[in-house]
Amino acid sequence: MSGEVLAFYLLAALAAGSALGCVIATNIVRMAMCLLGTLGAVALLYFLLSANFLAVIQLVVYAGGTLILIVFGIMVTSRTYGEKLKPRTSEALIGTIVVLALFAGLVAILLRAPWTPVAPTEPSNSVAQIGQELLGTYLVPFELASVLLLAVMIGAAYLAQPAKKE
């Protein structure tokens, strides 16, 4: 068993286990911590897929930004410590059945799909390549994303501002 295979299965186990933790956990902060596990494992999987730039961006933006925002949101919005909002039993039951069926279906399709084997490609300098693609082929989406970010910034600031005193 080569190092790559071992690393993949360890990371896959971590990612899947953390995702399962998200499902099981009732405490919302523990859910966020499980999400951290998944995000970190997926970032390391990106390293395995030789998408280095993506891996670090995932760590910066997701783990270092979005997740902190989520934990911050949890702290602002939970008055009672350790408040538990358990899913209703009927909902959980139906959800489990549907999701399990979906997963089984997906796996069945995936295992049967006739992927023609293609030799994995090793990008020589992914950062420079990504930069050129972003400012070349994908220039319009790139600019649109920046406009969207500006809109989001203004919108979030407007939404979260304290209510004006009458």
């Binding site: 902060v29 760590l59 902190i68």
Partner: peptide
């Protein structure tokens, strides 16, 4: 010697905050 070493370190600075938060 990562080709994205600088952002990696930057990312690690960011992730460490979660520990304090938790």
């Amino acid at each position: 010697d990562l080709d994205v070493g600088l952002i990696f370190i930057f990312a690690m600075f960011g992730v460490g905050v979660l520990g304090v938060l938790i």
